[in-house]
Design a protein around this nucleic acid. Structure first.
Length: 150
DNA sequence: GCCAACGTTGGC
DNA sequence: GCCAACGTTGGC
């Protein structure tokens, strides 16, 4: 089983939104590397750190679980959607997504600041300078370590 | 709101 | 295939 981290802006979709809806199609990813992680790396049952970005205290706020295999992101075909991609087609869909389901909220936010200041986490992809990926893998060791911080 | 660090696009 | 221009992400 693999572990992941997925970013979301809480103003757009927060951990509380996922808790309320229980399950959500993770649409709108328009980065090839992030797509490849979802398409090629994720399997149902994989665990996910839910990360809030672009907010007062960015950090890990909860845990989710991959709830489907990857399938074409419907929003790429919808001209009304802001995620519409005229370069994609139903024959050859460019963008894939997975469903994720709510597992739990952490008792507290494991903030980006805290992780940045922890030498044990220095090698996390999340903390690499300039990393803007919204979907990325998490080492099993880092996963375990962060859970213990809660 | 600013801007650094990217990724993508398109002219050549 | 290079690279300048442009758009986006996301911390601050």
């Amino acid at each position: 089983m693999n572990h992941w981290l997925m970013k979301s802006e809480p103003d757009a979709f927060s951990i509380d939104d996922l808790k309320r809806k229980k399950r959500e199609a993770w649409d709108g990813v328009r980065n090839y590397q992030a797509r490849n992680f979802m398409r090629d790396g994720m399997r149902p049952g994989d665990k996910v750190f839910f990360y809030h970005s672009n907010c007062a205290v960015p950090g890990i706020v909860g845990i989710a679980e991959v709830a489907s295999d990857a399938y074409p992101d419907p929003s790429q075909f919808d001209p009304e959607s802001k995620y519409f991609d005229p370069g994609s087609s139903r024959d050859k869909p460019r963008w894939m997504l997975v469903d994720v389901k709510f597992v739990k909220k952490l008792k507290r936010t494991i903030s980006l600041d805290e992780m940045k200041n922890d030498p044990a986490l220095a090698e996390m992809p999340l903390l690499r300078k300039g990393n803007r990926l919204s979907v990325m893998p998490v080492d099993a060791a880092h996963w375990k370590y962060i859970l213990a911080l809660e």
